[in-house]
Design a protein around this nucleic acid. Structure first.
Lengths: 241, 241
DNA sequence: TCGTAGTTACGTACGCCGTACGTAGTGGGG
DNA sequence: CCCCACTACGTACGGCGTACGTAACTACGA
């Protein structure tokens, strides 16, 4: 018998290896790291079992000794980079500052791994590092006197906002991968279409906005910081504890 | 010559057909509707060119007379269902009410088309219906005396929040498609892992939360409404015009 | 001590996918 | 009226995830 039975299981509960037989040449972590390297370099669509195997220097099917299905590989990748959060020993006591820092860290991680925002919307669950992250956030929010459900909403909203923001910024760049023309050409052609439509006069409000916008070039970092601040404020409008 | 040159172009600027030659058997809209039907029924991953052609009753390669690339089909699908927004003639004058209604409509559309939230993160741009939507939102926000950039942020945040919320709710169900076991089994096995981890004592805050949570079963609709309300409030904290 | 069962490694093969390319037929404009 | 742009679509290529079979290897029970 070669494989395992296809019974419901979570990758986190599956032991990496049993005691018998020859020592594996690699570890599950090796496989995941290779996949992350490929995704960082060439985009998530470049992560195929054959490519990961080649990066690792082994046969394609050998990977299935470490990872039961491709989808689990995605989940392992998300968990691996979620480990990049640097969480201090103890929360500072200022939950706004702590959550703001978390949001900025998350944003930085998603910039380091441009595939993350997209994959997280599909392959996200209670992985070990997700639990570690969640536990840390709840610790930060301990001083906030609100029901537990609201704290979970707050965490979800902060995460979701970080994801949505970064995904939006990266959409064009990621979409341009594998197109038969360059990202600049894509952006130019889309911009031209937009301008043509706006010039048609059918979108007066939008036209007014575009006429006003170039006067105020915006700093994405600043907008992000403002967005997060406003979000946190909305959860404790009384300037609350 | 069969195809067109691979020059940069946007699907929206591409004419559906030129005058010469035999009448096409279908329209671009027919193709897109078929794709949407398939995605609604069997998930976005079931939308393949062969499958769409079969649904339509034509040869696979005939589709390329209507749609230059698969990715454009995605964009057309998003635009098609974006047309389901029902936008009144004129905004009501109460921008909070209008934006709240928009958010709820968007949520409803994403429930009708469970693939939408995922595809939008990749294949979203200034499509005709996106422009119509944006123009409407800007009209709603006309009474709000804030700089144009902030209004765009508001719209983006509302949309992003709707997407993130729905995507999160649908993650498990969508992921379960094509798995060798059922959604219920998947959820059970993930729940069991979570409980096991929490029971380990390594996550005291999370354990406390889970101990408290079952006492207060939550209504997703209510949470959504609250979230949107809070979000809007954060953009005009002074109860502003 | 030794057989054997449970591993690891991995080649082969199947059925999908997107789509490039070539060919045949059709019908409107010069 | 005829030419050629256009539609329709069959075939084929290179890629994908992964089921399955085989061979080599090692830890454990007898």
């Amino acid at each position: 018998m070669a494989g395992r039975a296809a019974e419901p299981e979570v990758i986190w509960a599956r032991p990496e290896r049993a005691g018998r037989g020859p020592k594996p040449a690699y570890s599950r972590r090796d496989v995941v790291d290779a996949a992350v390297r490929i995704a960082d370099a060439d985009g998530i669509d470049a992560v195929s079992m054959r490519r990961v195997a080649a990066e690792l220097g082994c046969g394609t099917m050998s990977l299935y000794n470490y990872v039961p299905r491709k989808e689990d590989l995605y989940e392992l990748m998300v968990d691996a980079v979620s480990g990049e959060y640097e969480l201090p020993e103890e929360p500072s006591g200022d939950w706004r500052a702590d959550m703001t820092a978390i949001a900025h860290q998350g944003r930085a991680i998603m910039y380091r791994h441009p595939w993350l925002a997209r994959v997280m919307t599909t392959a996200y669950g209670f992985s070990p590092n997700a639990l570690r992250f969640l536990e840390w956030c709840l610790g930060c929010l301990a001083p906030l006197e609100q029901p537990a459900g609201l704290k979970m909403q707050l965490i979800a909203m902060v995460n979701g906002t970080v994801m949505a923001t970064v995904a939006n910024e990266q959409a064009i760049a990621e979409r341009a991968r594998g197109l038969p023309w360059s990202e600049e050409e894509e952006q130019a052609v889309r911009g031209a279409y937009l301008m043509g439509q706006v010039a048609s006069g059918r979108y007066p409000h939008l036209a007014a906005l575009l006429a006003e916008a170039p006067a105020a070039p915006v700093d994405p970092d600043e907008i992000f910081a403002m967005t997060i601040a406003r979000l946190l404020e909305s959860f404790a409008p009384d300037g609350g504890r």
